[in-house]
């Protein structure tokens, strides 16, 4: 993999800003303008609307558009935060995020180390298998898994029934909320491990063999080498990957929604994404939905702070 060189390459380094012709000063602004306008329309305006409406209450009349919503300050937030259902869903989402992201990281790092340890052909086979799973569009992923876990003819029930004493033919995984989330988590782990494994593997290849040789001459064992040399070098990559996984698994919407298509819906099977959807588009409670969305957003921004700082560093 070639990395584009990061040497600063600016034509415009001359300090004498004031002497530049007007056209030259305006040029960068003109270049930025289209992207800026597109972002303001597609993201800026909805974001502003959301912040504004998280302070407004949509009563019945407002839901039907016959009266404008009432300004209620923080009432939506306090309503949500004193609502058992919201907490139930928030806690479920956080547990789901933590388990799914941790499983993804553990398996991803393990498989990256495995790729490093095995011969070339075994590594290539594993990498191609990972890429194929990673490339699947979400809806295709979910559809295929819907068939794999199908209660009548699903191959997973069939194979699991090979285990002596287990008979799962006809078992519906999507009825019990625990197995519902277990299946959701499994699918997300299956789909996200390739990205983690391949990224960690790429980072592992950057650990120089000289350093490792020197360490083994000094009598370091394999485990010591992993802990003292390899891990510290790849730690920044792992931190960022873990953060991205946490962020992505907190806001998971499509997978849960599509699993609900195969099974059943309702707060019993909701996570934050589907819950906000049912508040807003399902029940027209736009104020409450906006406030819930803002809470998710604060969480995400808090989680991603480190990643944002890293990217800014890269810019300098």
């Amino acid at each position: 993999m070639t990395t584009p060189a990061m040497t600063p390459s600016r034509l415009d380094d001359s300090p004498a800003v004031s002497k530049k012709p007007l056209g030259k000063i305006l040029l960068p602004y003109l270049l930025v303008l289209p992207a800026l306008v597109a972002l303001l329309v597609g993201m800026g305006y909805p974001l502003g609307w959301q912040v504004f409406n998280s302070f407004r209450e949509y009563g019945l009349a407002a839901q039907f558009g016959t009266a404008s919503p009432e300004w209620v300050w923080f009432e939506n937030y306090t309503t949500l935060l004193s609502d058992g259902t919201f907490w139930f869903i928030l806690v479920k989402s956080i547990v789901f995020m933590a388990i799914t992201a941790s499983m993804t990281m553990i398996l991803g790092i393990g498989l990256a180390l495995l790729m490093k340890a095995v011969s070339r052909w075994a590594r290539l086979t594993l990498q191609i298998a990972m890429l194929l799973a990673w490339a699947m569009p979400i809806v295709a992923q979910m559809t295929v898994w819907g068939w794999l876990i199908d209660k009548r003819n699903g191959v997973i029930n069939y194979v699991l029934s090979w285990i002596p004493g287990v008979d799962l033919i006809g078992h519906d995984w999507l009825v019990n909320p625990i197995t519902f989330y277990g299946i959701g988590s499994t699918i997300i782990v299956w789909a996200s491990v390739p990205f983690v494994a391949l990224s960690v593997y790429a980072a592992l290849t950057q650990v120089s063999s000289e350093v490792k040789e020197a360490a083994s001459l000094d009598g370091a064992s394999g485990w010591q080498m992993l802990r003292r040399i390899t891990m510290p070098i790849i730690r920044p990559v792992i931190t960022i990957l873990f953060l991205l996984q946490l962020i992505w698994d907190l806001r998971v919407y499509a997978q849960i929604r599509l699993l609900q298509d195969f099974g059943a819906g309702g707060t019993k099977y909701d996570l934050l994404g589907t819950y906000i959807y049912s508040l807003g588009i399902g029940q027209n409670q736009f104020g409450l939905a906006s406030a819930a969305a803002m809470i998710v957003m604060f969480f995400t921004i808090g989680l991603s702070w480190y990643y944002v700082r890293q990217l800014l560093k890269e810019d300098n």
Partner: peptide, 26 residues
């Protein structure tokens, strides 16, 4: 320039899933 770069990075982090309702209304 700096503000624009920060905006680009922060927007990448905003959960699209939390903006649906607003985008739908717009």
């Amino acid at each position: 320039r700096k503000s624009f770069v920060v905006a680009i990075i922060v927007i990448q982090m905003l959960p699209a899933e939390a903006m649906f309702i607003a985008q739908y209304k717009m």
